[in-house]
Design a protein around this nucleic acid. Structure first.
Lengths: 226, 226
DNA sequence: ATAAGGCCTTTTGTCGACAATCTGCTTGTT
DNA sequence: AACAAGCAGATTGTCGACAAAAGGCCTTAT
């Protein structure tokens, strides 16, 4: 089984490029919707175009850029329609992941996940309402559950192909509302269901959790619009 | 909205390569599990390694090959576990696609799909039990429904990333049983549900349809094993 | 004034060669 | 005889340059 591209440490130049450009796009350092100039990026990162193009191919794979033949690449634009499509998928896929995780995670993995949540709780109390938790911690929990499904295709789609786009929406729309503590409780409920081997319940709770998260971002979007 | 890589006619050398190698792998012309030699393929298709590597990157994207840094690419191996994972996902995703299609397909699209089924029926009657229907026609129906969902991420995952692997399993395990006519009836029932705007029912029927198809292939696999 | 057409510049796609890394074998040692 | 170290061959990753295509700009005709 091949390891996830995002987890393995960068061994090659294009690996390093991928991580750097990924971060730059997610953080908005390279603005959404902007054209990508291969010569410019090659100069900026001090590499030839060969590894750069390899990295661009992988960026396309995680939906951060769009390429047209003989025209070039462009950073994706964020939209309400895109957000809805994305979260629609996440609801379905992460729901499935929960059902599978309840069946396939062993007791040790569940224990480790419990400990992770406890760590989140303390972190959250120390710097309550901090966006760090929302950005990394939340996704970390989801990450673990997805890995627990043991379905390699599901893992690949969620962790490699959609993960960064989700982060991009969150970062660029400034997710830092009061949903943090609520999200934590929801995580705990989901994990309980998994620990009880109640896949159906975990599925349902995860769908609600993601649905609530989507609502939250939609609100943020409309708030910005007015 | 960027057009599907598999639909657009090949404009560049790597496009052409992708199609040719895709076919070769799906049909077993390049055997499952075999190592991919870049120099060899480059000679075989009369191109340099640059477009070849571009094509390989896209082949990895649709799960037909697996690459390791500094080691190279290898055609995927087919396994029961892989098949189950794949069909698990399809059930979920194509179920969702049906629900969305019932909501988003317009009357004209539904009419066209009805005509497609009629065409399948006549084709099936003429050369009944032919594998052509099973290979192309069935996937064609699924294809249309997926496109009808209007969810670009869902379309991308199913039509670009999983489609060819599904075909590979079917072709290499020789799907040509008596399921053909039954599958046709199931398609008709699904389409009816969509036409009636009954997304829930379409979802349920599609899940059953795929589940039955999975059972069929599993049977074939076990039959080969004994 | 506007629209069509052709040039020019820039960008993308492809090529062949070089550098870095891995694989398998030989060789030497315990 | 078994195992480790090192070497040779081949393969992958990267580079710089060339070819082909797209987009912009100017000219020209209506």
């Amino acid at each position: 089984m091949v390891q996830s591209p995002v987890l393995r440490s960068p061994v090659t130049a294009s690996d390093r490029l991928l991580l750097e450009i990924q971060r730059a796009i997610v953080e908005g350092d390279i603005p959404a919707g902007s054209k990508i100039s291969e010569p410019e990026l090659a100069r900026r990162f001090q590499v030839s175009r060969a590894p750069l193009r390899e990295a661009l191919a992988r960026l396309e794979r995680c939906h951060l850029i769009e390429r047209l033949p003989n025209v070039g690449a462009r950073v994706v634009t964020l939209s309400v329609a895109g957000l809805l499509s994305l979260y629609q998928l996440r609801e379905e896929l992460e729901g499935l992941a929960c059902r599978l995780a309840a069946a396939h995670m062993d007791d040790q993995e569940i224990d480790e996940l419990k400990q992770l949540l406890e760590k989140h709780l303390s972190t959250q109390r120390v710097r309550d309402g901090e966006s760090y938790y929302q950005e990394e911690g939340d996704l970390d929990f989801h990450y673990r559950v997805i890995l627990g499904s043991k379905n390699s295709y599901l893992i690949n789609i969620l962790c490699d192909e959609l993960y960064f786009l989700v982060r991009m929406y969150r970062v660029q729309l400034g997710m830092n509302g009061p949903r943090v503590s609520r999200a934590f409780d929801e995580h705990k409920a989901i994990l309980n269901a998994i620990a009880n081997r109640d896949g159906e319940l975990a599925d349902l709770l995860m769908r609600r959790h993601i649905s609530a998260s989507r609502h939250n971002i939609e609100l943020q979007l409309k708030q910005m619009g007015t």
